[in-house]
Nucleic acid binder design. Sequence first.
DNA 1: GTCTTTGCTGGTAGCGCTGTCAACGATCCT
DNA 2: AGGATCGTTGACAGCGCTACCAGCAAAGAC
Lengths: 365, 365
Amino acid sequence: MGRKRTKSGKIRLAEVAELAGVSPITASRFFRNPEALSVAKRTRVESAARELGYVPNLAARALASQRTEVIGVLIPSLTNNVFSDVLRGIYDASESSRYSIQLSNTRYSILQEEKLLRLFLAQKPAGLIVTGIDQTTESRAMLEAADCPIVQIMEIGPNPVDMMIGFSHFEAARAAIAHLFAQGHRRIGFVGARMDPRVQRRLDGYVAAMKDAGLFDQRLIVTTATPTSVTLGGALFADLLAREPGIDSVFCANDDLALGVLFECRRRDIAIPEQIAIVGFNDLEFMASSVPTLTSVRTNRYEMGSTAAAMLIEAIEGKRPEEPVLDLGFMVIERQSSQMQRPVASPRAPEWAPAVQNDSVTNDP
Amino acid sequence: MGRKRTKSGKIRLAEVAELAGVSPITASRFFRNPEALSVAKRTRVESAARELGYVPNLAARALASQRTEVIGVLIPSLTNNVFSDVLRGIYDASESSRYSIQLSNTRYSILQEEKLLRLFLAQKPAGLIVTGIDQTTESRAMLEAADCPIVQIMEIGPNPVDMMIGFSHFEAARAAIAHLFAQGHRRIGFVGARMDPRVQRRLDGYVAAMKDAGLFDQRLIVTTATPTSVTLGGALFADLLAREPGIDSVFCANDDLALGVLFECRRRDIAIPEQIAIVGFNDLEFMASSVPTLTSVRTNRYEMGSTAAAMLIEAIEGKRPEEPVLDLGFMVIERQSSQMQRPVASPRAPEWAPAVQNDSVTNDP
DNA sequence: GTCTTTGCTGGTAGCGCTGTCAACGATCCT
DNA sequence: AGGATCGTTGACAGCGCTACCAGCAAAGAC
């Protein structure tokens, strides 16, 4: 064979082109924009590539084209199952594309986020997914100067850098409290951990709802900067109870805390929902099968991730969405832990069929 | 300034070298092996780089050096919190290094794993972390032919491809059953979901323990290929109970299932541990604060990830560990859900202090 | 029939960095 | 003193691919 190989024996684009009887640049085009080739050459290059087992060298491509096919993702936590759902969405949506995901963990630090952002941007990513809307001024400036599409996820707010997809934590919390009001509750406690910006906005929603009803009382609120856990939920609830024994319900900033509250009630023989109603946030899987089943605010985490990645990829390829801000909404899923009026249908009631969710408060924008 | 810039205005290594008054290659060496430079030049290059805000172009580096600074990670699930702990360890350990993580999800498919492996290997990663020891023959061959260090994580077994870090799921399950035996249990059910290779080996350990004791009974085993969940735990336990009402305990292949069993017991007013003892697997956080607290087998997931990444990076840089296979062991954490003999200390007993774990069965090799 | 337009193809010239090898002075040994 | 060794530095030549522009044939405009 007259085919010359590189010393490493690797198959290069040149080898494919030679076998296909075309120039290297034509072969290159086949991999980037097959439509631009005549059908004859297209099939020739395709079979040559297959025959040789050609795999493009991404480093060479990135160097020559001055851009990478990497999507940078900045999330604040790898532990939280909320983010693992979002991540799964992102990975699933990017899998069928040419883009690969570069993930970094900011650990809830906007300074760390700024540092990582600088690192990412230096490598000219094809696109960027960042969590939330609370960047440092410096980060914000970098994002605005970046010449790639950017999606902010997890929440929505004013002044998107570029695209934005999420929901209003404020409104979601308000809806949860409205649900508790509707069930006749008045002394509603708030239990929150970590207190990142999104949890803070849930607290804001709670405060607004309570103030609107003339029921606000600072002593009903227990928060900590400590990372969340089930155990912590129990401990915070114990604190709340010690301070305010007269509460009739608790809104937990997330489901782990809610589960902790449930267990703490068990320990103290507090009847749910008769003595204390519980509402969580996120609607993790276990909320539907605990005893009693736990009311929660469902958020579309997987969709948030997959839609963000899909939108981003579309934007990278030039098809920007007509509406850059997407509100994915939320839904208050009413379950036993907060239903006072309605008699509990059966002691075995978990929603193995989804019927229970029918009369839920929804916010599908 | 006589300094010539690339048209894009980007700062290249050449600019740094010029400002520092050295040749480009010397500047290059500064970033890869500063020790090789004289102190004078080292500081000159360093300050020049800082002054210009130089950031190396990774694509050019990869192309020229014929290798990347990417560590490929193949895990079977992004949902499972077991893997999020491992991942966190991997990310934490790699953060301070020059290597970046490229993560892919095999979705528990060894065919998908093979495909992803091929993709990874084509880009010449600096190292690879793969989950488990059950690769396809083809994958196995690729791994063995790969010219980069490889760590298999999550379990240990014979014939490591290269390095290996994990623990024996078989022995861990056996220890869990031994614990139940010691508490006087005989009719021990097994509940498992997903049934990936590691869960299968836990089942094998259970079977071995039961057979050794002459207590094996196929009807005590309920498994499904369905992905695990709390709800599923309840459902599988219900099946088990319908078939074998006489069981005195259940070993769950993971903690989510165990929590589901706990809730199902609540629904049926089955007393734990008096009527049914429960043992889970993994020792997720909530196991210590449920009511009753749940016995589980603690596995060192975070350490598995961080040690794997650290070992891999060491190996990449030429310092292979003396012992390529590392057994991280496990520990049976005895809690209320399986303790028959000992009186429960207090109804409020969760281990906010870790004292309860003292007399646990350990396997620290 | 000529002139433009369109579609496809190829040549040239790097992208920014590092591997290799050679050269240099300083230090050490005998 | 002469030679060998070490530590440090630089020149050169690509790594494999694509941007850019030019060329050419076929199709359409007048």
